[in-house]
């Protein structure tokens, strides 16, 4: 094993982020909404036992397609919007850094 290998292992060794990190992750995980089965979610929406028939019928139609399709459409739009935003920020950063390059070059010429 070469000296470079040793130095790379040293430079890239793992570092523990500490107990604070663990605490933050667990706090955030605990704050996430609890996972419920699809049955529990539907019943939470449609209320007590007397409405189970209506809940079941409506749930069936939702499951068949309307709500699911709309949800997926919104999810897709959100993903596309976030992706477009990310691209825009990259584009602005690059435009900005190249403007700065041009400015610095002008200033260098002015100082020479």
């Amino acid at each position: 094993m070469s000296r470079l290998d040793d130095e790379l292992r040293n430079a890239l060794r793992r570092e523990d982020p500490g107990e604070d990190f663990t605490k933050r992750v667990l706090e955030r995980a605990a704050a996430l909404p609890p996972k419920r089965s699809w049955r529990e979610r539907l019943l939470a929406v449609f209320g007590p036992a007397g409405n189970r028939w209506a809940a079941g019928a409506l749930a069936a139609s939702l499951l068949i397609g309307v709500g699911g399709i709309e949800y997926r459409r919104q999810q897709r739009m959100r993903a596309e919007g976030e992706a477009a935003k990310a691209q825009l920020m990259v584009a602005m950063r690059i435009a900005g850094s190249k403007l700065r390059l041009a400015r610095e070059k002008v200033m260098q010429v002015g100082e020479e």
């Binding site: 060794r13 793992r14 570092e15 990190f21 663990t22 667990l26 609890p34 996972k35 419920r36 089965s37």
Partner: peptide, 25 residues
């Protein structure tokens, strides 16, 4: 869909402590 982890997996908190060095690094 449940909060129970498979029997082969340690609890979530243990997973975090065990692997946080790797993920963070």
């Amino acid at each position: 869909e449940s909060d129970a982890t498979p029997a082969e997996c340690p609890p979530f908190a243990d997973i975090v402590r065990q692997h946080q060095g790797m993920v963070f690094s």
